[in-house]
């Protein structure tokens, strides 16, 4: 009886300690995520008319989001671009992550640093770099013209594909790092065991390495997909006349029109779809474990 009571007391103290440790993070989330999200949600039910926002409760903004086909179109484009960026990033990132995790040996830290360094440069500058590289008078075109491979400058920028390339470049580290973390954790013995039991390289990869790296694949895909879906700057700088993405639409409502309630409703729907996606991914990869 006494011992049980003491155990309960200890458990309670442990829980209190855990709660105290979690408090800063919880507060941070509350102030910088939950509160803004609530304000967003609240504002999405306000009425906007004649450049004025009023407090009366209305579903009109949501009605518009779902009735105007342009929003669905932009949303579907955003999803398609994000999916493409995610798939391409996975294919590009996997060999890199695998190399760093399994083969790099003592160069591993150096390679990892090389991976992180681009983060020190602003995304704007990195995106502008593509303009310099791929522009009409850019480095690639200069090479093509000088070498006679092309007769006129090749147009590479300002198209959905340029947006995809730009996003892959910016988001690749978000794929490589979780993949690396997951590949690095795999016991090298499992790979040797598979080979010992008669599996060739391809079989070993398909049956052992890849399945064991799935948590990293899941996190990487999730990060890249969500970030690509919400990308704003890259489509604006590298996109063509018809490359609008959902964040650009939301931005216009806030910055140009001043119709914050409609922007809020768009953002809430966008957030909801992202959350559903995250939950779906979570479930998928939890089931794998």
């Amino acid at each position: 009886m006494n011992a049980a009571g003491a155990a309960i007391g200890t458990a309670r103290r442990e829980r209190a300690k855990a709660a105290a440790l979690l408090l800063p993070a919880a507060l941070w989330l509350l102030v910088f995520f939950a509160l803004p999200a609530f304000v967003l949600l609240d504002s999405s039910f306000d009425r906007y008319a004649d450049a004025k926002v009023s407090d009366d409760f209305t579903f009109a903004n949501y009605a518009r989001v779902f009735s105007e086909s342009v929003y669905l179109k932009v949303f579907l484009r955003s999803v398609a671009v994000a999916a493409l960026v995610t798939a391409a990033s996975l294919l590009l990132a996997y060999p890199v992550a695998h190399f760093i995790a399994r083969r790099a040996g003592k160069n591993r830290d150096l390679l990892f640093l090389a991976l992180i360094v681009p983060f020190w440069t602003s995304i704007v500058i990195r995106t502008y770099a593509w303009k310099i590289l791929l522009g009409t008078s850019g480095a690639v075109n200069y090479f093509l013209l000088q070498s006679g491979l092309a007769e006129a400058p090749v147009k590479m920028l300002f198209s959905p594909s340029a947006v995809v390339v730009g996003l892959i470049h910016v988001l690749l580290p978000f794929m490589i790092i979780p993949l690396y973390a997951s590949l690095e954790k795999i016991d090298p013995g499992t790979v040797e065991a598979a080979m010992d039991l008669g599996a060739g390289r391809v079989q070993t990869f398909l049956r052992i390495t890849f399945p064991l790296s799935l948590p990293g694949v899941g996190v990487g895909c999730l990060l890249v997909f969500i970030l690509a879906l919400g990308s704003f700057l890259t489509p604006q700088l590298l996109g063509g006349p018809g490359s609008l993405m959902i964040s650009n639409v939301i931005q216009t409502e806030y910055m140009e029109t001043g119709n914050w309630p409609l922007g809020g409703a768009l953002a809430v729907v966008f957030l909801a779809v992202s959350l559903v996606f995250v939950a779906g991914c979570n479930k998928l990869f939890k089931a794998e474990e």
Partner: peptide
């Protein structure tokens, strides 16, 4: 400005349609 304010919402939608 009043005309702009009264129509901006509609114009914005139009602009989105063009850009999408």
């Amino acid at each position: 400005a009043r005309y702009v304010a009264a129509n901006q919402d509609m114009w914005n939608l139009l602009a989105n349609r063009i850009k999408s």
